[in-house]
Nucleic acid binder design. Structure first.
Length: 475
RNA sequence: GGCCCCGUCGUCUAGUGGUCCAGGACGUCAGGUUCUCAUCCUGAAGAUCGCGGGUUCGACUCCCGCCGGGGUCACCA
């Protein structure tokens, strides 16, 4: 059996969004599980659309998500080069073969003439077929005109790993351009040559190519080649659920998710689950599990809508799967500036308290600043509190003074704090919603925080008492 | 318009003729976890399985038609 070799072949026209990276993910998964190779090939045959630096950005995105490729433009490989613009000789060679066998010819028309044919077809509400205008005696190809494939229309039936058994009639086969007048090949031609030369076993690509596959099949035949396994992915839909996810409609760069503190494994899990599941009720998968359990045949044929809510939930779930040490290591760059003055031990304690609260790392500062910095007293936290606003200033002071007194005797271990806090409840004849809220607000000045006892334990005695004094002074 | 693909709770989905008056997850709502936020747990609402015909003792599952959505018909990929 042929070795499994899959490829991701983007054109360098911009960043990668979730929809784009999914084909890469599935190709990577297929290669990983078969112990095969995953290849990155840059399809830069359209100079006009090329965006400078986009190839670097794509490579960074792939690596950022852990989709490490075995062969590619920056690392080379047995079938280098991996940039189509550097493989022009190959295309020329194969094109010559086609010319020699009478299966390719020079297109004598000007673009305007072809456009006129096209307009005519559209006016008559029928599909445009170039071969209806195929010249009888085409000129010799001088490299200045487009080179067209001389198709041999016939029906096709083939199997697609995702879409199942497909078939089309001869009417969809046409003479498409192999080599453009600028000397560069079209995608339609180049990818077939490259996949052949690079011994690609599975072509995993988006749905926009589905209609062209019969044409590719016809070309493979003319070339005397056996086509690789085909797998066509449905599109990921934008929030409106209609159009495919696109940059124009605000699809985010996957690297932006990484920058916001989304975990690569969560992103990968989420993207895979958009249109794929293993048939069980499992939702959270590690990359390893994905590799063993993934299968193209279980990929949904219909498009799936991108749902940020679900991504957030899934990212939180993956964050909670991390050990504290791992989390600490990965979240390093997200601490608020004030945290610089604190040692790792202290940050660890803080992290332990917020781990179950984080949806993505970028939220870290707003969840933790009060652990590192005294926030100004915010009277609204009390005046807007449904229980506390009913109390008089004197009551508030009495409560806070009692708390201060009791806390002064504590060793500030979590257990001792819990005991004392509970004792205070009886002493002051108040309920938790009143007493604990007040102390929590006084010591954090934050709208939300982890549990009182554990928060105080991390804050420590001096700081806690000082903050109570500060609040007292403001009343 | 031709051709092709798709159509189950708001969303992601399970479901390959009977165990489905349709299961799980996200989201939403309610309750519990001595305080807030979150986690976790419990519960609730939420899908006449796009519509209409068949086939069958029986259809979400098979067939036909229709409707709706998408893709494609480039010297873009």
């Amino acid at each position: 059996m042929m070795k499994v070799r899959t490829r991701f072949a983007p054109s360098p026209t911009g960043y990668l969004h979730v929809g784009g990276i999914r084909t890469a993910l599935f190709a990577w998964l297929v290669a990983q599980q078969a112990n095969g190779a995953f290849i990155l090939r840059i399809e830069d045959t359209d100079q006009s659309r090329e965006v400078k630096g986009a190839d670097e950005h794509i490579m960074k995105s792939l690596k950022g998500l852990g989709l490490v490729y075995d062969e590619g433009p920056d690392i080379g490989g047995p079938f280098a080069p991996y940039r189509q613009s550097e493989r022009l000789e190959s295309y020329k060679k194969w094109a010559q073969k086609l010319i020699d066998t009478g299966r390719a010819y020079a297109d004598p028309y000007t673009p305007a003439e072809v456009q006129a044919f096209r307009d005519q077809a559209q006016k008559e509400k029928r599909p445009f077929l170039y071969r209806d205008h195929r010249p009888e005696n085409p000129p010799v190809w001088d490299g200045m005109k487009p080179l067209r494939f001389k198709s041999a229309p016939k029906p096709y039936a083939w199997h697609d790993e995702v879409m199942g058994d497909l078939k089309t009639g001869p009417e969809v086969i046409d003479d498409f351009i192999l080599i453009k007048s600028d000397g560069f090949p079209t995608y339609n031609f180049a990818h077939i040559i490259d996949d052949t030369e690079m011994e690609v076993s599975h072509i995993i690509r988006g749905q926009e190519f589905l209609a062209s596959i019969p044409n590719y099949l016809n070309l493979y035949e003319a070339l005397g080649l056996t086509p690789p396994t085909m797998a066509t992915m449905p599109h990921i839909l934008g929030p409106d659920g209609k159009k495919k996810l696109s940059k124009r409609d605000g699809a985010k760069d996957v690297l932006d998710y990484i920058r916001d503190g989304y975990l690569p494994e969560a992103l990968v899990n989420f993207i895979a689950s958009l249109g794929w599941n293993d048939g069980t009720e499992q939702e959270i998968f590690t990359a390893k599990e994905l590799i063993t359990k993934f299968s193209l045949s279980r990929v949904q044929k219909s498009g799936a809508r991108f749902d940020e809510h679900r991504l957030e939930w899934m990212n939180g779930a993956h964050i909670r799967l991390l050990s504290l040490a791992e989390l600490s290591d990965r979240i390093k760059t997200f601490w608020p500036a004030e945290a610089d003055d604190y040692d790792d031990q202290y940050k660890h304690k803080v992290l332990a308290l917020v781990q179950e609260r984080l949806k993505f790392f970028k939220e870290l500062p707003e969840l933790t600043t009060f652990f590192f910095k005294d926030l100004p007293v915010n009277p609204e936290l009390i005046s807007n509190h449904k229980q506390l606003k009913k109390l008089s200033t004197d009551d508030l002071k009495t409560l806070l003074n009692a708390a201060k007194l009791e806390l002064s005797d504590s060793d500030f271990t979590r257990d001792d704090l819990t005991t004392r806090l509970n004792g205070l409840l009886g002493l002051t004849h108040t309920k938790p919603p009143v007493l604990f809220s007040l102390i929590r607000i006084a010591t954090t000045q934050a709208p939300a925080s982890p549990g009182l006892a554990e928060t105080l334990a991390v804050l420590g005695k001096d700081r806690s008492i000082a903050r109570i004094d500060q609040t007292l002074a403001s009343l």
